[in-house]
């Protein structure tokens, strides 16, 4: 965790929220008398402040219900209000668009549904072992030399004998 995680983010609510319908009846476990303000719906408790027709706030900004019944603990989604929504950016006249779906701009290879006749049926037969498909060499030439190499011909016995028989001949001539 960085230090930024510990700072208070604007608009960050308390961590305990509930989606349940506000319950006007205090829970049975509650022994303490409560004020009437806590038992009223929020819009009734704050007349003129909350617009009942307004869109609901983001989930992270919902306030805990009056019943104080906690349905779950949520990690708040931290939104930096200083950063604009990138989806509203306009760069060089191009506005952000949702990523293309496969139908509208898909350049990949569509997976085809296998045809029934082309399926390879694999039958397990442990006793007989697998049916091995053996490879064969292609009939065509795989390698072609651009320039033929000089064929190496080993010396014959006669050539070797001639070389040995000629040893020292130059000595005699010199």
């Amino acid at each position: 965790m960085s230090d930024d995680d510990d700072q208070d983010w604007p608009g960050s609510p308390d961590t305990k929220v509930s989606k349940s319908t506000p319950d006007l009846v205090p829970p049975a476990s509650s022994r303490q008398p409560r004020s009437l303000k806590d038992e009223l719906p929020l819009d009734d408790a704050l007349p003129g402040i909350l617009d009942p027709e307004a869109e609901p706030l983001a989930e992270s900004e919902e306030r805990p219900p009056a019943s104080r019944k906690v349905a779950s603990v949520r990690v708040p989604e931290r939104v930096d209000e200083r950063v604009d929504d990138y989806s509203t950016w306009e760069i060089d006249g191009l506005t952000a668009e949702p990523p293309p779906t496969r139908k509208a701009g898909w350049l990949g290879v569509e997976r085809k549904t296998p045809v029934e006749g082309t399926r390879v049926l694999i039958e397990q037969n442990a006793a007989a072992g697998p049916n091995v498909v053996r490879r064969v060499l292609p009939e065509d030439e795989l390698v072609a030399l651009g320039s033929p190499a000089r064929a190496h011909r080993s010396a014959t016995f006669g050539e070797l004998l001639d070389a040995s028989l000629s040893l020292g001949d130059e000595d005699e001539r010199g």
């Binding site: 014959t156 016995f157 006669g158 004998l161």
Partner: peptide, 11 residues
Amino acid sequence: AMLDASPEAAL
């Protein structure tokens, strides 16, 4: 045949 043979064959 002996002269044209390879050294191995002749030997």
